[in-house]
Amino acid sequence: MPILLTLWVSFRDWTGIGSPFDSEFTGIDNYRELLVDPGIRRKDFAISIRNTFYYVIIVVPAQTVLAMFLAFLVNQRFLRGRGAFRTLLYFPSVTSSIAITLIWLVLFFPSGIVNRVLPIDTINWFDEPNGVIHNVAGVFGVDSAPSWARQEVFELSMWEWLSGPSVAMFAIMLLAIWTTSGTMMLIFLGGLQNINPEIEEAAAVDGASWWKRFRYVVVPLLRPQVYLTVTLGVIGTWQVFDQVYAANQGGPQKTTLTPAFLVYSQAFKNSKAGLAAATATILFVIILTFTWIQRRVTGRSDEAA
């Protein structure tokens, strides 16, 4: 029902104030503004897609691998205080995302603990709009767009598309990986406890090191859990909102703007609820597509295994 209503509103010029039934039908105008007509709306949408795309392709694999690894560690029967470790690792997942983002902001202050620990020049993490890939390219002397990258595709130049996540977004990614891996770890723990310990013992008797046991015995047996966590991860990361809202509200220089945040700001700050609904609908389609691709990919490797 809400999905259908969102779809319905996305074809109207509803401002978000007053009843949507008084708004006018505007056909595909909202979608045109986001996808076809050049202008600020399409540009903001393109920027949000770029930001979130990098966010998804980095956060999802990282949190899945980390979670699997943590689950494997805390599942070791020889580990003392397993319960305490599990609680500690799960803690960030049950803390309010807004509260934890604020703590993160303090940690990443220029004079914060992260800058003190890292042996690099002080970085004002959450205020740094430069792309990570741009920064790496800068190390190799490429600090402005080469001629092939100046061409504009969908409002942004190739150079802007290839910027990578900004340093500010990167800090939010680290936060997301840290907080979500606790939840995913629980899913993997559930999977691990379903694995008959004799299988691992047999591998150990055969002389497999712990790494080999992890890589060749445990990981293949956890395939259903991998499928679940990656699917949840893809859906969750495309919808990233809380952290962005609490940290930077899309800044610096729109580099932490995400489609979900755009939906919020269009609907509630800019009185463009119709446009927001259209953005939400496109986001929905993107998530469906990604989930479908991911299903195809994991499905194929299932046959190979």
Binding site: V263, Y264, A276, A277, A280
Partner: peptide, 9 residues
Amino acid sequence: LAVSAAACG
């Protein structure tokens, strides 16, 4: 609610 739910996950 649909709009806010989409925005807030």
